[in-house]
Design a protein around this nucleic acid. Structure first.
Length: 811
RNA sequence: GCCCGAGUGGUGGAAUGGCAGACACGCGGGACUCAAAAUCCCGUGCCGGUUAACGGCGUGUGGGUUCGACUCCCACCUCGGGCACCA
């Protein structure tokens, strides 16, 4: 025994972790009985794209933080369901496959296998029985089903629209995938504007609900704010302007109070009425300008500080407030995608209009007088002012004139209150190969026919050469035998939709699938869904704040309205974690600063690495990865190990008062910290506790003081805790409802250090018993020599007493 | 330009308006060792002072509120993130 015993005296992470990985597998410790589970807790983390490079430190950081949360909840007695999956469809996978000249269908399984091994090695409490892959026909059958449900409800529509075309990806991108006019995947490639037939999901129908629900969702503020900005709600009015051809033009404005200052009108170059309004002598100039604007890529077009350009159409409209005739121009600073594609220009109170009016010598008429006399009247865009040059409304403060003028225009039937959103409909068509085919068939006689539900999935056909081409048509159009089908409705020759759907559709519902993976005849079982959803806790990165999280909310809301779900928000609690950067920059392969976790885990063990990542800084802030302090965590675990191996069965005695007090304080503090994802401070509290135990326990510490420590360590260092728990004599997993309670009474300090300040400066500290009265505290303070030196000969004018904290004497 | 977040020792960071710098890294000194590593103990914000007692200064900058400000308010600077010709 002695030989074996001494061998096990030192902490060997490699052996401990191997042992528990195996035992967890054998005992199915991490599998959840989704049907039983009396206290369900759905702990969701963002499933990864299984890249060829494997997990990097950023992924591990994200997963471990979520895993710590799930394990903590489990220790508190919840039945935690912690599933994972793989987001394996999409342009990212496809482009990589093209680059290495291998089919994605071959690459993906290998990548997933690698991810699986890495995730197991990290010690995540994942339930692999419920894993999903979006490329599995058993999964994307239901992605297609969701498309059909939205189609039936009129929420999926096909329309010709100006879309973002990436010449590199050779496909259409959603607005959310365009970064500063560049493709999010090819930051060097400018996105072009093309007019194509595309499938859209009408997310804008839900804009108001997507916005107002944010008020009650328990989400990280940063994420919430990003969604608010993205939805971009503006209140204002639609105003109708008459034109000489008789077709009225509607403009949207957030400042109807400035209508008296609208001295001209501007249409977007693509506005449908431009042709009709262009007069003979202006025809040439207008056509030239439109051609020029159309050819321009969206980058140069969208840059805000570019010089304003435009052309007069030759026509005039009538200002509905003044009745005056004002010229109609076209200019590319007016965007067809927002509002009505037409504006009333109020150069006196809009920077862009002023710049334009100055350049083309158009009238500038001030209609708001700023309250602050220091402000220039022309160019004032604020609300703190009063109306002027505005007829009967002169003298009204803006806040009132805006209401009065809107009402007046409404009565004249030339305007009405209007709420405008910046959010656009979601273009889901992709002219690519690696995605779920959109389940639609086109028939010359029957038109657009949805694939019957019973025919799902529309399986993605194998295709050797899946390279996209310039045609703007998906490579699937080259697979004749797949593409040509009989019409489901009339049986005549018809053909399939060849576009596949956006990857973000795959990820917009994956959390609905996890509990129900056993079923192939339904996307999500109603009983299981009611039991597990909405998700209890979702932890992920803010890089998905407006893409994935918005789409997932939209799909959930739509399915709710269609009667498939009884909740409309999927994630009641969402927490954004920070980003791990390296040398101040995001990790990326091109920068060559990607940190691979494997070598750290091999060297230090998963538990040390997990804890180290969590100790790095506040979890919700992230930070720069460096490995300088990792040995500190290992030293800490070694010390904890030594305490466990030397634990005694002895009762707690008087000599353990301080340790016991510290224990109860630690349980209280660590619990509160873990609740708030403050992992770094939770760990420091555990370190303090270990330091106290080491200072007090000469000849072994009673197990009663060590067991709670092991439990508190379990979320962070799960293998380590299991091993310690077993060594302390338990034959069941520590991952039961083992979280210790604390006694407020026992956590209370008996004596405290009272700080004495004179005029706010610390002049003395004295140890006194807790709960000292104000008078007694001040008396004791004045009795101190170090204090007397500063008070002597002066009158104490005021004495502030903060119980059990300080006394401040003002002299 | 607009909207978030952050600026604290040599480093990462900690602090319900109440002892700034917990915890850890690093560094200095010591113990153990033939020696080194590991481990253990002590010290470690800056300046002055004798290595002391003690004193002064100190949380991006400048003001303010307060008995008392890293914390609250105003203005600004820098960095990170998001949005951006959105009418």
């Amino acid at each position: 025994m002695s030989a074996e015993r001494s061998e096990t005296q030192t902490y060997d992470p490699e052996a401990v972790e191997r042992k528990w990985r195996q035992l967890w597998g054998e005992r199915r410790t991490n599998a959840t009985d989704v049907h039983g589970a009396p206290k369900p807790y759905y702990n969701l983390m963002m499933y990864p794209y299984p890249s060829a490079e494997g997990l990097h430190v950023g992924n591990v950081f994200a997963f471990v933080g979520a895993d710590v949360h799930g394990r903590f909840r489990r220790l508190q007695g919840w039945d935690v369901f912690e599933p994972i999956g793989f987001d394996a469809f999409g342009i990212h996978s496809e482009n990589y496959a093209l680059k290495v000249n291998t089919h994605p269908a071959e690459l993906i399984p290998a990548n997933i296998a690698r991810f699986r091994e890495q995730m197991k090695r990290v010690g995540l409490m994942l339930d692999w029985d419920h894993a999903v892959s979006t490329t599995d026909p058993r999964y994307y059958k239901w992605t297609q089903w969701i498309f059909l449900k939205l189609y039936e409800a009129g929420l999926a529509v096909r329309k010709k629209a100006p879309v973002n075309w990436c010449p590199e990806c050779k496909t259409v991108l959603a607005n959310e995938q365009v970064i500063n006019g560049m493709c999010e995947r090819h930051l060097e490639t400018a996105v072009e504007l093309r007019f194509l037939e595309q499938w859209f999901f009408k997310i804008t129908d839900f804009a108001e609900r997507l916005l107002t629900n944010l008020e009650w969702l328990d989400w990280s503020d940063s994420t919430r704010m990003m969604q608010v900005n993205w939805i971009g709600r503006s209140e204002g009015a639609d105003l109708v302007f008459e034109t000489p051809t008789g077709t009225p033009i509607t403009v949207f404005t957030t400042r109807p109070d400035t209508v008296f200052g609208a001295t001209y009108m501007v249409l977007a170059p693509e506005h449908p009425l431009v042709d009709e309004l262009t007069t003979g002598e202006q025809r040439q100039a207008v056509n030239d300008y439109r051609r020029q604007a159309g050819a321009m890529d969206l980058v140069s077009r969208r840059v805000g500080d570019k010089e304003k350009t435009g052309v007069f159409t030759g026509s005039y409209t009538r200002n509905p407030a003044t009745g005056e005739s004002v010229p109609i121009w076209i200019a590319d600073y007016v965007l067809m995608e927002y509002g009505t594609g037409a504006i009333m220009a109020v150069p006196a109170h809009d920077e862009r209009d002023l710049e334009f009016a100055t350049k083309y010598d158009l009238e500038v008429r001030q209609v708001v007088k700023p309250d602050d006399p220091a402000e220039a009247g022309i160019g004032y865009t604020g609300w703190d002012g009063t109306a002027m040059n505005s007829g009967q409304f002169d003298g009204l403060p803006c806040a009132e004139s805006v209401k009065a003028i809107t009402k007046w225009l409404e009565e004249k039937k030339v305007g009405g209150v209007k709420v405008q959103y910046r959010l656009h409909d979601w273009c889901i068509s992709r002219q690519r190969y690696w995605g779920p085919p959109i389940p639609i068939i086109y028939c010359d006689d029957c038109g657009t026919v949805p694939v019957p539900e019973g025919d799902l999935p529309v399986v993605l056909p194998p295709l050797e050469d899946f390279r996209p081409d310039e045609s703007g048509v998906s490579p699937l159009a080259r697979v004749k035998e797949w593409y040509q089908v009989p019409c489901p409705s009339c049986g005549k020759d018809a053909h399939r939709e060849t576009d596949v759907s956006d990857t973000f559709l795959d990820s917009a519902w994956y959390f609905l699938r996890y509990p129900s993976t056993e079923f192939d005849d339904r996307p999500f079982d109603s009983v299981l869904t009611r039991k597990w959803l909405p998700v209890s806790s979702y932890i992920g990165g803010n890089e998905h704040a407006v893409l994935h999280l918005m789409y997932a909310r939209f799909i959930t809301m739509a399915l709710h309205d269609l009667g498939h779900l009884d909740f409309e928000e999927p994630f009641t609690q969402f927490r954004a974690h920070g980003t791990i950067v390296k040398d101040g920059a995001k990790m990326s392969k091109s920068r060559g600063n990607v940190v691979i976790p494997d070598e750290y885990i091999a060297k230090w063990g998963a538990d040390t690495f997990r804890m180290y990542l969590m100790f790095l800084g506040p979890y919700q802030e992230g930070g720069d990865f460096r490995d300088e302090g990792i040995s500190g965590i290992r030293r800490f675990l070694d010390k904890a190990w030594a305490l466990v191996t030397a634990a005694t069965d002895g009762e707690l005695g008087d000599g353990h008062g301080e340790a016991q007090r510290k224990l109860h304080q630690t349980i209280r503090g660590v619990g509160a910290d873990l609740d708030e994802l403050r992992y770094n401070t939770a760990i420091s509290k555990l370190m303090e506790y270990v330091n106290v135990l080491r200072a007090s326990g000469e000849a072994g510490t009673p197990a009663a003081l060590i067991e709670p420590l092991v439990v508190m360590l379990a979320p962070l260092a799960p293998h380590f805790a299991e091993e310690c728990w077993e060594r302390l004599g338990h034959d069941t997993s520590v991952f039961g409802p083992t979280w210790p309670g604390y006694d407020e009474e026992l956590a209370q300090e008996k004596t405290i250090e009272l700080v004495v300040q004179v005029n706010g400066k610390v002049r003395g500290r004295l140890r006194v018993q807790a709960g000292l009265s104000q008078d007694a505290a001040i008396e004791r303070a004045l009795a101190e020599d170090s204090v007397q030196r500063f008070v002597e000969g002066k009158e104490v004018r005021k004495a502030i007493h903060v119980p059990d904290r300080l006394v401040n004497l003002v002299v």
